[in-house]
Design a protein around this nucleic acid. Structure first.
Length: 155
DNA sequence: GCCAACGTTGGC
DNA sequence: GCCAACGTTGGC
């Protein structure tokens, strides 16, 4: 990223696996298991501690933004890639040259209500955002500052 | 459960 | 380097 200004992000999680309430309870969580290069690059190259995150519930009855979190650390190697017992084990990675990076994510607050994907799609001002691009399956993606403010104002 | 829209893998 | 086959994501 080109400046020191705070950046904004959106991170998806299936609530049955890890929900905003899970993050609230644990306060902070290592965002492991990302195995997509573009998503990794956003975490490794784009994220800085203090950046704000929309926490998004995917693959559930009402997909949408449910809370706000914060980047808590710089990127570091995802330990699950080295663990043969982990679902996320990657035999092609090594400790000397780790392939997958993650950041810790810290709970900030829940939104007063879920701002659903369906609702977001109803706002022409937001149609260009990566989340609403057809076919986008990225689990970590940037959110423009203007879009961030616009969405928060919907709350 | 279906399936579109990807990303990855591997034969050639 | 091409591209078919395969696996995954995630809305519906």
């Amino acid at each position: 990223m080109s400046s020191d200004a705070m950046n904004y992000w959106l991170m998806k999680s299936e609530p049955e696996a890890f929900s905003i309430d899970d993050l609230k309870r644990k306060r902070s969580e290592a965002w492991d298991g990302v195995r997509n290069y573009q998503a990794r690059n956003f975490m490794r190259d784009g994220m800085r501690p203090g950046d704000r995150i929309f926490f998004y519930h995917s693959n559930c009855p009402t997909p949408g933004i449910v809370g706000i979190a914060e980047v808590a650390t710089d990127a570091y190697p995802d330990p699950t890639q080295f663990d043969p017992g982990s679902h996320y084990f990657d035999p092609g990675s090594s400790r000397d040259n780790p392939r997958w990076m993650l950041v810790d994510v810290k709970f900030v607050r829940k939104l007063k209500r879920t701002i659903s994907l369906d609702e977001l799609k109803g706002h022409d001002a937001l149609l260009a955002m990566p989340l609403l691009r057809k076919g986008n399956r990225l689990s970590v993606m940037p959110v423009g500052a203007a879009d961030w403010q616009y969405i928060l104002a919907l709350e």
